[in-house]
Design a protein around this nucleic acid. Structure first.
Lengths: 344, 344
DNA sequence: CCGACTTTGTAGAACGTTCTCCACGATGGG
DNA sequence: CCCATCGTGGAGAACGTTCTACAAAGTCGG
């Protein structure tokens, strides 16, 4: 009749028939629930193996879990997220959970739509990496699904958080540059998310730490907004470096932005580190590349990811109900993009 | 407040009640199926808006589609995939489909598990980027779910393909280097996937094109296997450059591997492009960075992604049943990592 | 006006799980 | 022995959709 389009799936019913038990029994084995004798256990497992049975996650989602963890991020281009994700995957390896990633772009509404998609797909837990969605929306989501927020320092009773001590990171950089003899040290940080209600975004905390450290050294802070992209760094760098008394050192809140500054400096004929010391943030793989050699701040992305995953699973499996925050200590990685400034 | 944990969802039943119609009617409106009067259409839409209704994708999956497209890739670290994904997202913007990404790592079995996860989650279509899974498994999957394979040149009646003309890409590079006067031009390409049954992986086609071009120029080909990672490029580069008559130019099958070669050259005191010309592949964002300036081959990743998405949706929505292949023409982007070799 | 269509809307059966009850037999204390 | 308890397994109702039938109400040509 029909050209047999799609081969039909093996279902729990098939397994039950094969093992000569009820579907309820198979379900119990599947979830290793209480009330199953070892004998039946084994028979069912054998039947599942013979038929190459795999539970239909979509169907599971109708009643219980889908064994899916969603990770929201803005862009795949920031390889720091790859570090985080490695940690997540590693932590979840061997478990039954699958990680699916939504790359939503930088728009708040697109991110919100992506998060909703994940909720609609009945994901068991969400990891939101520095979400641009409004705080209210994140809180509403967290009310529905276990959620871990990475990046933002704002805490909430309803979701867990994993952050890096960005203020300490900024201090490390300022101390390093000040020790080299720099006095005009500028900061490029992402512009705030307007109206998003997040008070303590990574960039805000970074800026706070930077300002405090500068004051501690008796130096005048100079901060400029720059999108965390090559282009953003380039534009801000161009402005800073064309000014009358240009800084002798620039720290950027992301490696990729620092590399934009690099291009601006190159165009203006400024050598690095001769005429300008440059520091990035995140210590992504690019920073370590032979031709790049960018001094940066390591955030142990993999550890952050692993921690987030562990915390999330605790929540998903109901082993913890209190919210929790984890902070990582950053570490300065000095490479050859920083040096003492010219003698004035 | 009540201590009730999870607020219940708005379902199709709620909408039906609000609009004073049957759930079947609401479903029809949702799928804009045949047999709905404009009046009812409007009433239902109003009710959906009032209640802020969103269809439950997991439930949809039980019967029909989930409006989800899965993208399989090995690692987020290769930013070429970000280009592809941008294209996919852009093509699907405004549609009802959500894109979810599985980063499965390089292992064949892990990739297979990830693909199965996607099938189990009842995704409507899959885009597999240079899958390491065996060909047989991919064919089996494509039998069940509409699938587009990106990268591998092997065609099949059961899935669509989007490829880059890698042989042409290799020729572009060899021609460029030969024109500069190079005669010892080595190729670093990924090792084949053993036992995977793919005959025409991107790297195999690249190697073929390279060999043909070298012969055309009367030059002796010299190919070496190298994983497409910084480390892989470094190791292969070290070996090549320490040998007696080291090549004066190296082309790598991926930018990231070329950057590994860069490190090897730096360690051996070889300048680029003075002592060694270096060419990458994919023209990822790193290649264009100010301190990098790597000559590379552009593959129009975004276009590949957009094309793959368009082809996939045609299949998903049943507008096409014949398999289809699309090939892109690569373009050489010359930067400052290539120059004439030293006069011998 | 009458039958034959067409259009619009509904009832209700899937889909593949989970999970709450419930039944049944075996055990054991009194 | 009787009755409560326990351990094991099964029946069957959800879960939120889709979609096939089918009923009811027009519409229209003759």
């Amino acid at each position: 009749m029909e050209p047999t389009k799609r081969p039909k799936r093996v279902t729990i019913t098939d397994v039950a028939a094969r093992a000569g038990v009820s579907t309820a029994a198979v379900s119990k084995v599947l979830r290793n629930a209480y009330g199953v004798s070892p004998a039946m256990q084994e028979r069912v497992r054998a039947a599942m193996a013979e038929l190459d049975y795999r539970p239909h996650a979509a169907a599971r989602g109708m009643r219980g879990r889908t064994y899916t963890i969603g990770v929201l991020l803005d862009s795949l281009r920031n390889t720091f997220f790859a570090d985080i994700l490695d940690g997540v995957q590693q932590q979840l390896r061997g478990s039954d959970y699958t990680v699916l990633i939504g790359a939503a772009g930088f728009g708040a509404s697109e991110q919100a739509r992506t998060v909703q998609s994940m909720v609609d797909r009945q994901m068991d837990g969400l990891i939101l990496i520095a979400p641009g969605t409004s705080r209210a929306e994140v809180l509403a989501t967290a009310e529905t699904v276990p959620t871990v927020v990475i990046g933002h320092h704002d805490t909430a009773a309803v979701h867990d958080s994993v952050v890096d001590a960005d203020d300490q990171g900024a201090a490390l950089v300022v101390d390093h540059l000040a020790a080299l003899g720099h006095r005009r040290i500028a900061l490029l940080a992402a512009p705030g998310l307007k109206g998003s209600q997040w008070k303590l975004t990574p960039e805000a905390v970074l800026a706070k730490g930077y300002t405090a450290a500068m004051k501690r050294h008796g130096l005048a802070p100079q901060a400029l907004a720059a999108a965390y992209s090559e282009e953003g760094g380039y534009e801000a760098g161009k402005r800073l470096l064309s000014a009358a008394d240009r800084p002798t050192a620039i720290m950027a809140g992301a490696d990729v932005a620092a590399l934009g500054v690099y291009r601006a400096a190159a165009e203006l004929g400024l050598g690095i580190p001769g005429d300008l010391s440059l520091v990035g943030y995140n210590n992504t793989a690019v920073a370590a590349l032979a031709p790049v050699q960018l001094t940066s701040v390591d955030q142990a992305g993999a550890t952050m990811g692993a921690t987030a995953a562990r915390m999330l699973i605790e929540r998903v499996e109901g082993r913890r109900s209190q919210a929790m925050q984890t902070a990582m200590t950053p570490r300065l990685v000095v490479r050859s993009s920083t040096a003492a400034p010219h003698a004035d």
